[in-house]
Design a binder for these strands. Structure first.
Length: 153
DNA sequence: CGTATTTGACCTGCGC
DNA sequence: GCGCAGGTCAAATACG
């Protein structure tokens, strides 16, 4: 469903994002890495090889943005695979959980529409992409790419 | 047929 | 210890 904001027939602005969008950085302090599988009978074998990078003590890359858009799907040029959708108690709109479909790219994205302003969607990124963007010639992508450099410190 | 999306089940942490 | 809230996975389905 690779539909992008520009792909969608918006009615207001040419670009879904206007100068009114603001982004704020959220430093992830507490984290709940429930790497444990949900259903039992899974981690029976001695699969201790799954011990990849365990810098649990390092700062978590978490960036949140608030974008004024009519659509929830903010395509930043990467490929996202939705893996969950839950309703939050503070919002009357469900929250969508996305994950980068790239190999080794465990970047997570979280999209939630604010109940206060249904036209504002909060996008929360977690992690850093280990691959380059394939897309181009995208106004939105441009903005998002700059944003990445901003937070890539 | 392969990949992405949907939806329900299930797990973890926190509060009481 | 149980319930609530939030988060994730996995099987089935839809779509190209």
């Amino acid at each position: 469903m690779r539909v992008s904001i520009y792909d969608h027939h918006h009615e207001d602005n040419d670009k879904a994002v206007d100068a009114n969008n603001k982004f704020e950085m959220i430093s992830g302090s507490s984290d709940a890495p429930s790497g444990n599988k949900a259903i039992t009978t899974k981690s029976s074998s001695t699969g201790g090889k799954n011990n990849k990078e365990g810098d649990h003590n390092k700062k978590k890359h978490k960036y949140a943005f608030q974008t004024r858009s009519q659509v929830d799907i903010l395509d930043d040029g990467y490929r996202w695979r939705k893996y969950g959708q839950k309703t939050v108690k503070n919002s009357k709109f469900p929250r969508s959980y996305y994950r980068c479909t790239h190999k080794g790219c465990n970047v997570k994205k979280q999209i939630q529409r604010l109940s206060k302003d249904e036209e504002v969607v909060m996008t929360t990124y977690e992690g850093i992409h280990t691959h380059s963007i394939d897309k181009s010639s995208d106004d939105f992508d441009n903005i998002l790419r700059q944003m990445q450099t901003y937070t890539a410190f």
